[in-house]
Amino acid sequence: PSSTPSSTPTPTSILTAPTPSFLAQLLEGEPDESQLCAKVLASLQREKASRGKHDRLNTFSIMCKMADQTLFGLVEWARNSALFKELKVEDQMVLLQSCWSELLVLDHLCRQVAYSREGCIYLVTGQQIEVSNILTQAGVTLTSLVSRTQDLGVKLKALHLDTQEFVCLKYLVLFNPDVKSVQDRRQVERTQERVNRTLMDHTLYTHPGHSDKFGQLLLRLPEIRSISLQVEEYLYQRHLLGDLPCNSLLTEMLHAKHS
């Protein structure tokens, strides 16, 4: 309450800083970007070393390998989360099967906000690729995907998405109580509500002048969902053409959704 009880409290005066321990707990589980980068590079090096000179991976396969390694990292992140551990493995599987591609898209977007140069896409390996280079070789679907994702990246940059907000959005994507066949729906809801409240408090606390930042961030989630569904469809079509590397977590997740 404000110091003058008779005055109507302004939003900032009734705010309390988000409970640092909860937000800190969410941040604790964040993987280290340089470690992830090193892991992906090492995996690509191993892959290259295991192939003959005339059996090189094409660009698309390399991108898939990167996505696969990033997906492994995201599963590991979820698995190490204390909140996720509160759920049975059955529920953990159902939630990840539902949102894995959203997590990949959100992870990619956050990397763009943090590191990408104008007109470039920043890869998990630390390389920057000119968007124009991709678009000259891309088909209709990939062109649409790249431009939609770039547009969303620009919006998130304009919103000054920070790491705390990114982590909260990841948890909101993961703990989705609307996923069918979740057994402990109430637990998922509780976590979702708590993260939602923490995100709201954090945005109001760090950007009191931008009262609608919280709403603007939440509005990006359906866009991320829509892009991720298009990514899945695109990857599945490529998979049917035999373009995807086999025996990967990526193909297994695609199979699970289409079986």
Binding site: F72, V75, E76, R79, V89, E90, Q92, M93, L96, Q97, L249, E252, M253, H255, A256, K257, S259
Partner: peptide
């Protein structure tokens, strides 16, 4: 669906000491 996700189950179920 769950049957298809043997790798995911392994990743989630694996014992950290293995």
């Amino acid at each position: 669906k769950k049957k298809d996700n043997a790798l995911l189950r392994y990743l989630l179920d694996k014992d950290d000491n293995t």
